Amino acid sequence: MTYVVTENCIKCKFMDCVEVCPVDCFYVGANFLVIHPDECIDCGVCEPECPAEAIFPDSDDKTADWLELNRTYAAQWPNITRKGEPPADAEEWKGKPGKKDLLDPAPGKA
């Protein structure tokens, strides 16, 4: 089992989750984070740290469309091990639905 980052992270990217991950399995895109499913140890410490409530166990129905997306981008984006600055407008995007089309496939900066 693994944890999965979902749509709520898009354009929020708060990164609080990165600081608590004991195995550094987060990868960063321009406006989204992903968890590498083969590196995640299913400890769950990241889930309650996410202010955008974007992280769920892969057993949750909300992750169906997101697990493979996390796997794909984890292979393309740089690993991130420290919390960076969230986007200036992150709070404005927090909780907004329908953000999947806004996901930027470009890698972020670790």
Results as ranks from 00 to 15, higher is better:
residue 47 E to G: 03
residue 81 T to D: 09
residue 3 Y to K: 02
residue 94 K to Q: 10
residue 107 P to L: 06
residue 18 V to N: 09
residue 110 A to K: 13
residue 46 C to R: 01
residue 36 H to N: 12
residue 54 A to F: 04
residue 81 T to I: 05
residue 88 A to F: 14
residue 12 C to Q: 10
residue 105 P to S: 15
residue 18 V to G: 09
residue 71 R to I: 01
residue 98 G to N: 08
residue 53 E to K: 11
residue 65 D to G: 13
residue 105 P to R: 14
residue 29 G to S: 03
residue 7 E to C: 05
residue 19 E to S: 14
residue 56 F to E: 00
residue 88 A to R: 15
residue 20 V to E: 01
residue 74 A to K: 00
residue 24 D to N: 15
residue 52 A to K: 04
residue 71 R to N: 04
residue 14 F to M: 12
residue 21 C to P: 00
residue 75 A to S: 15
residue 91 E to A: 12
residue 77 W to G: 00
residue 74 A to Q: 00
residue 43 C to Y: 05
residue 55 I to F: 06
residue 59 S to R: 10
residue 19 E to K: 13
residue 76 Q to R: 15
residue 40 C to D: 02
residue 73 Y to N: 10
residue 71 R to Y: 07
residue 78 P to Q: 03
residue 26 F to S: 05
residue 1 M to S: 15
residue 101 D to E: 14
residue 8 N to F: 08
residue 44 G to S: 08
residue 42 D to M: 03
residue 61 D to V: 10
residue 9 C to K: 01
residue 82 R to W: 11
residue 101 D to M: 13
residue 88 A to V: 09
residue 2 T to A: 12
residue 19 E to F: 08
residue 18 V to Q: 07
residue 93 W to K: 08
residue 60 D to E: 07
residue 92 E to N: 08
residue 64 A to I: 08
residue 26 F to K: 05
residue 109 K to Y: 15
residue 34 V to H: 04
residue 41 I to M: 07
residue 62 K to G: 03
residue 89 D to G: 06
residue 36 H to T: 00
residue 70 N to E: 01
residue 57 P to D: 03
residue 94 K to R: 14
residue 49 E to L: 05
residue 95 G to E: 01
residue 103 L to I: 13
residue 58 D to M: 04
residue 91 E to P: 12
residue 59 S to G: 11
residue 105 P to Y: 15
residue 40 C to F: 03
residue 31 N to P: 12
residue 53 E to C: 10
residue 58 D to F: 05
residue 80 I to A: 13
residue 38 D to I: 00
residue 98 G to V: 01
residue 46 C to I: 00
residue 92 E to H: 11
residue 52 A to T: 01
residue 43 C to D: 04
residue 53 E to Y: 13
residue 59 S to Q: 09
residue 30 A to M: 09
residue 89 D to P: 06
residue 13 K to L: 14
residue 99 K to F: 06
residue 65 D to Y: 09
residue 26 F to L: 09
residue 106 A to N: 15
residue 51 P to K: 04
residue 10 I to S: 04
residue 81 T to M: 11
residue 73 Y to W: 13
residue 93 W to G: 04
residue 56 F to T: 00
residue 19 E to R: 11
residue 57 P to L: 03
residue 30 A to Y: 10
residue 68 E to G: 12
residue 52 A to Q: 03
residue 62 K to R: 13
residue 34 V to Q: 04
residue 82 R to Y: 11
residue 100 K to C: 11
residue 12 C to G: 10
residue 76 Q to D: 09
residue 94 K to Y: 11
residue 72 T to Q: 15
residue 11 K to W: 14
residue 15 M to S: 11
residue 17 C to N: 05
residue 60 D to S: 09
residue 51 P to H: 07
residue 22 P to C: 07
residue 4 V to F: 03
residue 27 Y to T: 00
residue 60 D to R: 09
residue 48 P to C: 06
residue 68 E to N: 15
